[in-house]
């Protein structure tokens, strides 16, 4: 258990790849299709290495790479660092690289995607911070190591925060109904459209790391009971995929409304009540 978190952080691209591959199989089966093999993301990875990379300009490509390394570093900081808030702020930074990269080219799809990515940030980050605050209120620590050794079940104290978090996961992982920054049918991948070959691969792999990041947060909600954590992660995974398969894309007005007027008050209410109970009574 001692080196577990570090191992996960280092191997996160590979773990994320497996999660992504598994998700593609599950998604296909939910659509009554056979689906690709489990290792398909890695095949794609190998194929993309061989492709010729067309750079728009060097800064843009660098931002792609920066996005990948920053996401990786974010995960490492989140899992191994002393404070999960650092991880969350680094997460914003990592996305900022993607956004700046998207803005740095003239392509309207890329620029529009970056604008929408900012809206994503606006919706996602407050909830992530409330999750962190909630976990701190329950466990009394900002560190992942301490939260994972907490003997109780944080989810019992934070049910509404958990619900809010699960419902915002589609926005983090860019899944329907909140996949607006990537919206294939409208802006064709958004900020990532102008990347190609090796640099697209960086973005592609960074997405896998996001999977690990999200499910690591889900994992935190069960404290020391890691079996329960696995079960909960699987359940959330299935729920997210079923939701992805049963909704169409909302537009960004609807997403903001949902995130700010439904999810945020929900999570805030939970934390407010918890804080009252902890500190006042």
């Amino acid at each position: 258990m001692a080196w577990m978190l570090e191992t996960i952080a280092i191997l996160s691209p590979i773990i994320g790849g497996f999660i992504y591959g598994f998700e593609r199989v599950v998604k296909a089966r939910m659509q009554n299709r056979q689906g690709p093999p489990l290792l398909q993301p890695f095949y794609d990875f190998i194929k993309l290495v061989e492709k010729r990379a067309i750079q728009v300009h060097s800064f843009h490509s660098m931002m792609g790479l920066a996005f990948f390394f920053a996401t990786w570093f974010t995960l490492a900081a989140f899992l191994c660092g002393p404070n999960i808030l650092v991880g969350l702020f680094l997460h914003i930074l990592a996305l900022a690289f993607l956004i700046i990269g998207g803005f740095s080219v003239l392509s309207p799809y890329s620029v529009m995607g970056s604008l929408r990515e900012i809206i994503h940030l606006m919706c996602v980050e407050p909830i992530l911070i409330l999750v962190a605050v909630g976990l701190f209120l329950v466990t009394g620590s900002w560190s992942v190591r301490d939260i994972l050794s907490y003997s109780g079940l944080p989810i019992l104290y934070l049910p509404l925060v958990f619900i809010a978090f699960v419902l915002i996961i589609p926005a983090i992982l860019k899944k329907s109904p909140f996949d607006i920054s990537e919206a294939h049918q409208e802006i064709i991948g958004g900020p990532e459209i102008e990347y190609s070959g090796f640099f697209y691969e960086a973005i592609y792999t960074a997405k896998w790391i996001e999977y690990v990041f999200v499910f690591a947060i889900v994992f935190l909600f069960t404290g020391v009971h890691w079996w329960l954590g696995l079960a909960l992660s699987l359940l959330v995974f299935l729920f997210i995929n079923a939701l992805d398969n049963s909704t169409c894309r909302a537009n960004f007005h609807q997403m903001i409304k949902f995130a700010w007027f439904v999810l945020l008050p929900l999570a805030a209410l939970n934390i407010f009540v918890l804080a009252l109970w902890r500190y006042v009574i």
């Binding site: 939910m30 659509q31 009554n32 299709r33 329907s176 109904p177 996949d179 919206a183 294939h184 049918q185 992805d244 398969n245 049963s246 909704t247 169409c248 894309r249």
Partner: peptide, 8 residues
Amino acid sequence: AGYENLVM
């Protein structure tokens, strides 16, 4: 509309 399952 991004409703993949219905498409399938």
